[in-house]
Every structure is written in structure tokens, then in C-alpha cells.
Write a protein that binds this DNA or RNA. Structure first.
Lengths: 231, 231
DNA sequence: ATCCGTTTTTTGTGATCACATTTGCCGTGA
DNA sequence: TCACGGCAAATGTGATCACAAAAAACGGAT
């Protein structure tokens, strides 16, 4: 088969070999790359302004440029990455105005999500929130910025999942994604050991079925992160 | 071109020929395709559930599958298109629950945008809004669904641009994009000749500097479209 | 006429290549 | 020491191809 003297480039076996080699679980390659990059960005593994390249991404995940390009295109569409006019890729460096906007969006949407989740909140949910909140406190005690971001977002996501509002949740997660690298940069130089006080207010309001209190607690928790922005 | 008897793929001249042929203005091919498809979807040129193919898009815009794929990937990320599990592409068919969610998001964000635009609203802006509103009335008189959607969104966008909040505006436009085909389907079977009454309330509130009135008017205008959803 | 199996066509995915442009680097000169 | 110019490396873009899976078209048997 090596002959085939004419025409066809025959890049055949490369793919089939790879197919049996790197896809034991399931899933399209571009989607796998997308999800991993998204996780890294949302949870603050990458600092703002860091440059990425398609060939670098492809090499790291063992794929060609094509799936790397598609995942990057998707992340750019969601605001998780920015592209310069010449197409260079990097994590976004947000201006103070944009941070304020994103915080306002978080306040708007997350208050609504919490409000919708309130009538559906059972005891099991509240206990799960308390467990997650323990992990948050531990992360802040260890001054682990990445763990703090991850557990904090898990706390909010667990609550909002009860709202049964997937479009709103997706929009909120997009905001989180855009703030990921910036939050890492901010929390990275943070020197506080306080446990998350507003999270306890949220849990208390959930217990009491107090909707105005819940709205206020969520809004406070979201905008508190904005407070430490003295740059 | 079918000949090329030997080896090298040599797809050389195709690109340079195309470069001098279809790019008189400027811009990357995938971005051009993206913008045109986005316009069609947002303004209701395409009905819900319509299937698209990468090869078809490529042929229509005179490009290969690669830019078509990237533009589609971006639109899928924004919720303007949906992909089945096997990768087939179509415009979304929204459930009633999702329509309600998107309308609630519009209400939340657009009220905030209008509120932020209010202190910046000058006389020139109000006059421009009135002019656009005339076009809206004309479109609804002619029962032209596409023109109605386009001018109506232009009315809102013109107001919100004054808010100086690009992230919020982008998020709102994403919601519009997701509702585009569905709005077309709804307004298409609409038989009303009423001019847009809530738009006049918005303009009046802007004139009076009445923020609560403006918030109420915008919320009413946005959620009114939801009212005619008897399906 | 209808249903089921097979075959053909369609369609998305991923890899590879050529190319243009931009970025970075290094040396030369003032 | 710094600036400028030119060369080399790196990078995104788009086209093309092979392939697998899914959809569609087809045909025969009941």
C-alpha cells in the first residue's frame, strides 16, 4: 500500500491510529479541548494577559490545529479569551469599567436565580451548601486562590441549579468565565483569612424562606468581590 | 483542474485568486460569514428548526468549509444555532420555558441599561428614537415581520448604546439572537396593526427624566412580546 | 401498500499543507 | 547606548482531502 504512485496524499493511518489511541472514553476532540481550557480559565489557572497559540494548544492536547482553533473560537465568542486585531490569542485583561459591569450583571442575574431557587430549596440542598461552604473556608484558610474560586463558584452553582433556569445559569457562567483570570489576579494578592460571611447569610435566608434577605445576601456576596479593587 | 497528474496538492492559486476577487473591502472570511449569518438569524430571516450545512454555507459565501465551520461554531456558542448530538446544525426551536427565561433576562438587563442611559439621554437621542419609532410603526402597518424586528431592535439598541455598558449590551444582543427565529415565527402569524405604544411611554419617560416610569415602560415593552405566546 | 434490510449519499470531523503577516531577534551604524 | 533595518521564526488563516457516522434513498419480501 506504500506504492500508490500517483495523486492521493494518503494521510490515512495517522487518524485511525490516533482514534484507537486517544479516545478510550468518548467525545469529540474539539469539545474535550474546549472544556479543559474553559475550566482552566474559569477557575483561575491562567493569569490575565497570558498568550496562547493554536499550535501550542494542539501539541499540549495531542491534536492538530483544527480542534484547537474551534475550541479557541468558541472561548473567544464567550469572552473567555480575546483576540488581537492580528488574531493573537490571550486571556483578557479587564478594565475597571468592565469589571464593574460584569459585577452588576452578576448581581442582576444571580439575585434572580437565587430568588427562583428559594421555593425549591429543600433541606438536602441547604446541607450540601453548608458542606461546600466548609471547603470554601478551608481554601481561604490555606490562601489557595484557585481552590477558593472553584469552591465559591460551586457554592453558587449548586444553589442556582435549583432555579431550573438553564439559560440564566449559562449566562451567569459566561460572566464567571470572563472574570476568571482577573479574579485569580485579585485573590492572588489577597491576605485575608475571613471565612465567607455572606454565604452564611445566604444559607440563613434560605432556611427562613426570607426572599428579601436572600436577595440582599446574594447581592452583597457578589458585589463584595468588587470592593477589593483598589487598583 | 481535475488533472494535476502528480503528487503535490498545489492548491496555490485558488487562494490568491480569491483574495483579489472577493475581498475588496476588508476582513477575514470567517468573520464576514459570521456577521451575515448572525444578521439573518437575529432579524428573523430564518425560521426555527431550519437545517444548515457547512458545505452549503461555504458554497453560498464562496468559501471553503473551514470558515463556515468557524462561524457556525461561534454562533452555536452564542445560542444562535443548535447542534444535534451528531453535529447537525439548525436554528433553535425554543420551548415555552426557555422563551420565558429569555424574556426575563431581557427584562432584567434592558431595564438596567435603560436606567443607565437615562442621565445621558440628550434631545438628539430622543428625536432619533422617535424617527426609528416611525419606522417601527410603518413596518407593523405593512405587516412586515422582518422589518418590524429589525427596527424594533434598532430602537432598543440606540437607547442602550447611551448606557456606555458594552458587556451588558453584548449580553442583551445575545438574547435577541437566540430569540430571532422564534420571534419571526411569532410575529409572522400576528395580525395586529397597533403602533408600538410602549415605545411612546419610553420616550415620554426619557423626556421627563422619570426613572421609575422608564423602568416600568421598558419592562412592559419587553414582556409584552411574551404575552402573545398562546401556543 | 408497508415494513425492513441494504446501499448510496450527505455531513461533520480532523489532519495537513501553503501562504501572508506579524512578531521577535540580531547585528550594524551613529 | 540606543535606534534602525533586515532577516528568521512563529502564528493565524484558508483550502483540501480522507474518513466515519448518520441520514436518506432504494428495493424486495410479505
Amino acid at each position: 500500500m506504500s506504492k500508490s504512485p500517483i495523486s492521493t496524499p494518503t494521510p490515512t493511518l495517522a487518524m485511525s491510529a490516533r482514534a484507537t489511541e486517544t479516545t478510550p472514553p468518548i467525545g469529540a476532540a474539539h469539545d474535550r479541548v474546549y472544556r479543559q481550557l474553559r475550566s482552566r480559565i474559569m477557575y483561575g489557572d491562567i493569569m490575565p494577559g497570558v498568550a496562547l497559540t493554536l499550535r501550542g494548544i494542539g501539541k499540549e492536547f495531542g491534536v492538530s490545529m483544527t480542534p484547537a482553533r474551534e475550541s479557541v473560537r468558541r472561548l473567544v465568542a464567550e469572552g473567555a479569551l480575546t483576540m488581537s486585531s492580528s488574531g493573537r490569542i490571550s486571556t483578557p485583561e479587564l478594565s475597571n469599567e468592565r469589571i464593574e459591569e460584569l459585577a452588576a450583571l452578576r448581581a442582576l442575574i444571580e439575585v434572580e436565580l437565587a430568588s427562583r431557587a428559594l421555593p425549591r430549596a429543600h433541606m438536602a440542598l441547604i446541607e450540601r451548601l453548608q458542606a461546600i461552604n466548609g471547603a470554601v473556608a478551608e481554601a481561604v484558610a490555606h490562601r489557595d486562590a484557585v481552590s477558593y474560586i472553584r469552591t465559591n463558584l460551586e457554592f453558587h452553582r449548586t444553589l442556582y441549579l435549583r432555579a431550573q433556569a438553564p439559560a440564566m445559569l449559562a449566562m451567569t457562567e459566561t460572566v464567571w468565565l470572563q472574570m476568571g483570570p482577573t479574579m485569580r489576579a485579585l485573590y492572588g494578592r489577597l491576605r485575608r483569612t475571613e471565612p465567607p460571611q455572606y454565604h452564611r447569610l445566604i444559607i440563613a435566608a434560605l432556611r427562613a424562606g426570607d426572599e428579601p434577605g436572600l436577595r440582599l445576601a446574594v447581592r452583597s456576596d457578589v458585589t463584595m468581590g468588587l470592593r477589593m479593587l483598589a487598583s
